[in-house]
Design a protein around this nucleic acid. Structure first.
Lengths: 173, 173
DNA sequence: TATTGTTATACTCTATAACTATA
DNA sequence: TATAGTTATAGAGTATAACAATA
């Protein structure tokens, strides 16, 4: 979703279907009224999510990590020895779609698939040393550039309240 | 994103790479530790957004309206006489992608494109009578089934605080 | 020359069926 | 028979370039 600005020009007299688009002096076009849209939680939630992901990507540009990739690295670090199905489903990623994602991370030497010795169908996931190092740097970037800006904007207390409400929605709605 | 449950089976002894996956009695596999993930605003925001959209779609099943279509109808109702570019860009929809969306709404007789008389390049958008009626029913469904459940879950005051914080992120982040 | 609506197109995400190798 | 990882594929959503009609 790009929030590009609306068109800036065209000149016509008021009075027909396009009435009200400009002020009497022929100034800039009036912004549209969002109306009830700005009260729709889904709408505002989506716009906020896009902004947060956008900012995340900018903060992580030097490490080339998407939010999804970051979440995989975090989860593998916290749960070493789990297989692809477990990691993927915990993140809400379908197993088929997880394959290419892992191929990418593995090709960058950030994590590795290890054939399990007791169930040779499974691939145990672990972070490589480079993966651990990159994740550590990523965490720092997130904390210093990304989350810190949210704290600035909302205040620490509000940020925590926001997180709690969103968690409640994610888990109980 | 589907949040399917993790695999439920497989039996192996503890002690190697898969250690800790089950309790000593061989019970159900331990759930994964989300760890820092549950503190990542982006992650929780995304999961919450998916849940809210999912619920929206269920509530609107009888009217067959997606969140995006609902937002278009709301915006056109509030701003009759605007053209495609203005409506689309306000919603963060790119003009080329708005064409098929409008084709759909127009084929269902929910809104209409009217060639502007003073700028024959523009299509003025308006709701049809049916469009107005469907939107009215949609608003009722949203209020009684969708938003009401959020109020139940969070409480009226919290829901308003949530909306305000998300708006701040959407507009100022 | 610039803009509106449009087409074509491509790339990412998401979703389902089916294959293989193991169990 | 069932499961883990995989392939193939299809559908949304999103992005850019370019064209015809009009300004």
């Amino acid at each position: 979703m790009t929030v590009s600005k609306t068109a800036e020009k065209s000149s016509e007299k008021a009075g027909d279907a396009t009435r009200g688009r400009k002020d009497a002096a022929g100034g800039p076009p009036e912004a549209l009224q969002l109306g009830e849209l700005s009260e729709q939680l889904g709408y505002v939630l989506k716009r906020a999510q896009l902004k947060v992901f956008e900012n995340f990507l900018r903060c992580m540009a030097s490490l080339q990590l998407t939010p999804a990739q970051f979440s995989v690295l975090l989860l593998v670090e916290k749960n070493p020895g789990r297989n692809q199905t477990e990691i993927a489903s915990t993140l809400g990623i379908l197993r088929p779609n997880f394959v290419a994602m892992l191929d990418n991370l593995e090709s960058r030497d950030l994590c590795a698939r290890i054939r399990s010795t007791n169930d040779r169908r499974s691939h145990i996931l672990v972070l490589t040393d480079k993966g651990k190092a990159v994740l550590a740097r990523a965490k720092k970037l997130v904390a210093t550039k990304h989350e810190s800006r949210l704290n600035e904007l909302l205040g620490q207390a509000n940020r925590e309240a926001l997180l709690e409400m969103l968690s409640k929605i994610a888990n109980e709605f």
